[in-house]
Design a binder for these strands. Structure first.
Length: 473
RNA sequence: GGCCCCUUCGUCUAAUGGUUAGGACACCAGGUUCUCAACUUGGUAAUACGGGUUCGAUUCCCGUAGGGGCUACCA
């Protein structure tokens, strides 16, 4: 049987990173089995609907390389279908009309809670006669359709990730199937669509675990075969609660805007809660590799803290491996003040190994195009003194003056020249390099003096060293 | 409150009856042409607790504790 998975987000705003992880797992599982990966937009809640949110989700999936098959299915366009199926359940006596007011339901729930009972619908409307029901319908009294849940039954299934899970039907509420506005609830629409779309594997978050008995009951009422379920663990805040906006960024867009790479984020989402095998210590995976190696059964049962430090590390790995031209392109938006393409490329090259996020590129780089202002004391190396620093800068300037323009064309040549000169004269490297670097950058911490001089060029380098001498006098 | 799920270093995890309990991130220390970064070598650090089963339990069972999820005419 062909394996078909789906990602079924509701378009209520941004896409949560946990949602992206679910999409990834569904995508991987489908691809590695040469199956299909479908997209369904669950837009049955009109009050929470955000216009355009579906387009954003589709764009993100595309940008991340999670290509889905077929056209996306919109539940809001399938109202008649859900109603048809609900009617069938009604006719077969497996569902019933309920006209209870929200107020009555609320009151009932409160009382049940007070009596330490599980809040559940009391099936009051099940006692309605056919005549009463028809009268209510004729008078257009708002009502819903509920599933008639059998009383004493054990519902169990083999979850791919968690093994056997069982619930008692007495703990399952008579779930609303069709709301009073005619829209289906998640539960009905989800089951009907998974069935009609021939979904074979449902991979979803753990928050759906306690809804699964409801879904299984609906499948049973229709006489359909249920798909296989895999309930993955949740992404957590550092305090181990469900990853939420209150404690940091949760939307995919947020992470992208912060300068995380798509590849890194996807890689991170894949390895958080999953490891390839007992033997492997691999952490970096391309999407293609994940398709080959991902194993649903090896997903971890317990929730995983979304560890930003590890994401930063992983992102840094990806940045360091990236071809310069691509990185320059990504950095450009963060450095609008630098119009000179060559200068931009040089700065990015020098900063490449220092970046954790793309956005870091805007940190401490002003000195590359603007004369730095700094305290002259900074020019003095810890093992040196003011007079020596000045003297060394003079020597250095004299030497650099002797180097032709072409020696500034590559970092390596410049470096070799200066180091050879230091060695030949038996200078201490720190005596020369520290003041040089500070003269060029004005910073305590910065790239090496060779790299900065290479970016600045011969003329600017000499000028800054000259200025540094004046500061020390 | 009820129902369900989970529990190995700070974090992500490996090890499914026999290991000095392994790796990665983070942290600490050393190395590397001055600082930072990168790289590299090394180090600190965990089986929640209590009972079983067993010659032997991280591993299997029970209980306790802790954490999480759900408990809507939201998904």
């Amino acid at each position: 049987m062909k394996i078909i998975t789906r990602f079924a987000p509701s378009p209520t705003g941004y896409l949560h990173v946990g949602g992206l992880r679910t999409a990834l797992y569904n995508f991987l599982f489908a691809r590695q089995n040469r199956g299909k990966f479908l997209l369904r937009i669950e837009d049955t809640d009109r009050s929470r609907l955000v216009l355009g949110a579906d387009k954003k989700i589709i764009k993100i999936l595309k940008d991340f390389g999670l290509k889905f098959d077929n056209k996306p299915v919109y539940q809001s366009k399938r109202l008649k279908i859900y109603q048809k199926y609900a009617r069938r359940l009604l006719e077969e006596g497996k569902a019933y009309y309920c006209f209870c007011t929200p107020q009555r339901l609320e009151k009932m729930r409160q009382e049940q809670m007070k009596n330490k009972q599980a809040p559940k619908y009391d099936k009051a409307c099940l006692k309605l006669t056919q005549q009463e029901i028809e009268n209510n319908l004729k008078r257009k009294i708002p009502g819903v359709i509920r599933l008639k849940v059998p009383g004493n039954k054990t519902i169990k299934w083999q979850d791919i990730i968690r093994g056997e899970i069982s619930f008692e039907s007495k703990d399952v509420d008579d779930q609303v199937l069709i709301k009073s506005d005619g829209f289906p609830t998640y539960h009905l629409a989800n089951v009907v669509d998974d069935h009609e779309m021939a979904i074979t594997y449902v991979i979803r978050g753990e928050e759906w675990l306690s809804s699964t008995p409801k879904h299984l009951l609906i499948y049973e009422a229709f006489g359909w075969q249920a798909p296989k379920y895999a309930h993955q663990s949740l992404l957590l805040n550092p305090d181990r609660s469900k990853l939420s906006k209150r404690q940091g960024d949760v939307s995919v867009e947020d992470y992208l805007a912060k300068g995380y790479l798509k590849e890194a984020l996807l890689n991170f989402l894949a390895i958080i809660g999953w490891t390839e095998s007992k033997a492997s210590s691999q952490e970096i995976y391309s999407l293609q590799e994940l398709i080959e190696k991902f194993d649903l059964k090896r997903l971890n049962k317990s929730g995983a803290v979304f560890d930003l430090e590890k994401l930063d590390w992983l992102n840094g790995c990806y940045i360091r491996q990236m071809p310069l031209a691509k990185l320059v392109k990504l950095c450009q938006p963060y450095l609008p003040q630098i119009k000179d393409k060559k200068l931009l490329a040089k700065i990015v090259k020098v900063e490449q190994e220092r970046l954790k996020k793309i956005s870091d590129i805007s940190q401490d780089i002003d000195f590359f195009y603007k004369e730095p202002d700094y305290n002259p004391e900074l020019l003095i190396w810890k093992k040196s003194n003011r007079d020596a620093a000045l003297e060394n800068l003079v020597k250095l300037e004299d030497f650099l003056l002797s180097l032709p323009e072409k020696d500034f064309a590559e970092v390596e040549i410049l470096e070799k020249n200066i180091i050879d000169w230091i060695k030949k004269n038996n200078y201490r490297v720190g005596d020369m390099l520290w003041p040089m670097r500070v003269a060029l950058s004005g910073l305590q911490n910065s790239p090496s003096p060779f790299e900065i001089a290479w970016v600045l060029g011969r003329e600017e380098t000499l000028e800054r060293i000259d200025k540094a001498q004046k500061k020390l006098k």
